[in-house]
């Protein structure tokens, strides 16, 4: 059985409080990418980190930030390992993390399974379909006005983990953290 020492808990809290380099409103703990902190001896620590997306370039900045924070806490040797399994999912984002995303103007991923692409039909132009289609899944709510009446503009937005949408009520465009 794996037991966690008080020191490991303390270091995990420190590592987990590091802000995400791309979405600084979230901490790594809230994003759910911090997997484990193991203390080997008093000044040597191993940290397991998992990437959100396979190609996410932020993981290197995360590693450097964790190393810095733990060094500042007096840990001499910090090794950050990247682990792939089990794969990260947007379900790993905490409720507090979701609340912060919404406040930051990003629609959080919809909770629960199933994940994956949502079928959306493209017309010749990007306009509202003339007849409303039955919603197959929970709608994506506008983070600005809360309306459920939003449309997809592009499956990939400023980063691979987000889609670009537009609110049809307040007309504001916004990013949506895609379900993965």
């Amino acid at each position: 059985m794996v037991t966690t020492t008080a020191l490991e808990e303390e270091l995990r809290r420190l590592a987990g409080s590091v802000p995400d380099p791309e979405l600084p409103v979230l901490t790594l703990e809230e994003l759910g990418v911090l997997r484990a902190v193991r203390v080997h001896d008093a000044d040597s620590v191993e940290v397991d980190l998992t990437p959100t997306y396979t190609g996410c370039p932020a993981i290197e900045a995360m590693s450097v930030d964790i190393e810095r924070v733990l060094h500042e806490h007096g840990i001499r040797e910090v090794a950050v390992r990247t682990v792939l399994s089990p794969a990260w999912s947007t379900d790993d984002i905490s409720d507090e993390g979701r609340r912060k995303l919404r406040e930051f103007g990003i629609a959080p991923p919809r909770g629960g399974r199933p994940t994956g692409p949502v079928t959306v039909e493209l017309g010749p132009t990007r306009t509202t379909p003339s007849a409303p289609r039955p919603q197959q899944t929970e709608p994506v709510h506008c983070p600005h006005c809360g309306s459920a009446d939003t449309e997809l503009l592009s499956r990939f937005s400023s980063t691979a983990c987000k889609a670009l949408r537009r609110c049809l009520s307040c007309r504001e465009p916004f990013d949506h953290f895609k379900e993965l």
């Binding site: 990437p51 997306y53 396979t54 792939l84 399994s85 089990p86 794969a87 990260w88 999912s89 994940t115 994956g116 692409p117 499956r155 990939f156 691979a160 895609k178 993965l180």
Partner: peptide, 11 residues
């Protein structure tokens, strides 16, 4: 890797 990447490839 496959378990992680397959969800990205769906998109």
């Amino acid at each position: 890797l496959a378990a992680k990447a397959v969800k990205e490839v769906e998109y």
